[in-house]
Amino acid sequence: MKLNGILPALVTPFDQAGKVDHETLATILEKQLAAGVSGFVPLGSTGEYYALTNDERRQILATVKEVVGNRGTLIAGANGSCTREVLEQIRQTVDAGYTNLLIAPPYYALPSQEELLAHYHTILESFPEINVVLYNYPIRTNVEVGMDVVAALNDHPRVIGIKESSGNLLRAIEIGEHHKGIQLSCGSDDQALDFYLWGASSWICGPANIFPEKVVDFHRKFTSGDIHGAQDVMRNLFPVMANLESGKFVQKVKYGTELSGFKVGNARAPLLPLTDDEKTEFRRVFEACQG
Rank of each mutant, 00 (worst) to 15 (best):
H121S: 08
G261M: 09
D226R: 11
L3P: 02
K252W: 01
G69A: 12
T53C: 09
F195E: 04
Q183Y: 02
L74K: 10
F218D: 01
V240H: 03
F286W: 10
E66L: 12
E144G: 00
N136A: 06
P111L: 08
G36L: 11
L61C: 11
D232A: 15
L153Q: 03
Y255M: 13
L110E: 05
P138V: 06
L110K: 14
E164K: 00
I204R: 11
A242P: 02
A192H: 07
Y135L: 06
S126M: 09
S185D: 05
H119M: 08
D226A: 13
Y108N: 02
L272Y: 06
D15M: 09
E258W: 13
A151Q: 11
C186R: 04
H219A: 09
V253Y: 01
V145R: 00
G18H: 05
K252G: 03
S246R: 08
L10I: 09
E258S: 14
Q251F: 03
G146W: 00
D232C: 10
I173Q: 12
E144M: 01
P42Q: 06
R283P: 01
M1N: 07
Q290R: 13
E56P: 01
D95G: 10
D21K: 12
N70S: 14
L197H: 13
G167W: 01
V216N: 01
I162P: 00
E125N: 15
H179N: 11
N136L: 05
G44T: 10
K163F: 01
Q191M: 15
D277V: 12
H179K: 06
P212L: 11
L87Q: 07
S45M: 09
Y196F: 15
L237D: 00
G97E: 12
F127A: 10
A17M: 14
R235S: 10
D277Y: 11
I28C: 08
R57F: 01
A230V: 11
P128E: 06
S45P: 01
V11T: 15
L33T: 05
Y120Q: 08
I28E: 02
F262I: 07
G97Q: 13
A151L: 03
N236M: 13
G229K: 13
M241H: 08
D190F: 05
P270L: 06
S202D: 04
V94N: 04
E88C: 10
V150P: 00
A269F: 13
V149E: 01
G72W: 01
I160K: 05
V250A: 12
D232W: 02
P212D: 06
S188G: 10
S246M: 07
Y120M: 09
K214H: 09
G261E: 07
Q113D: 10
L134W: 02
V132N: 00
Q231L: 13
A76P: 02
L25E: 05
C289A: 14
I182C: 02
V132Q: 03
G77Y: 02
L3Y: 07
V233A: 09
R84S: 08
V41F: 06
G187E: 09
G47R: 06
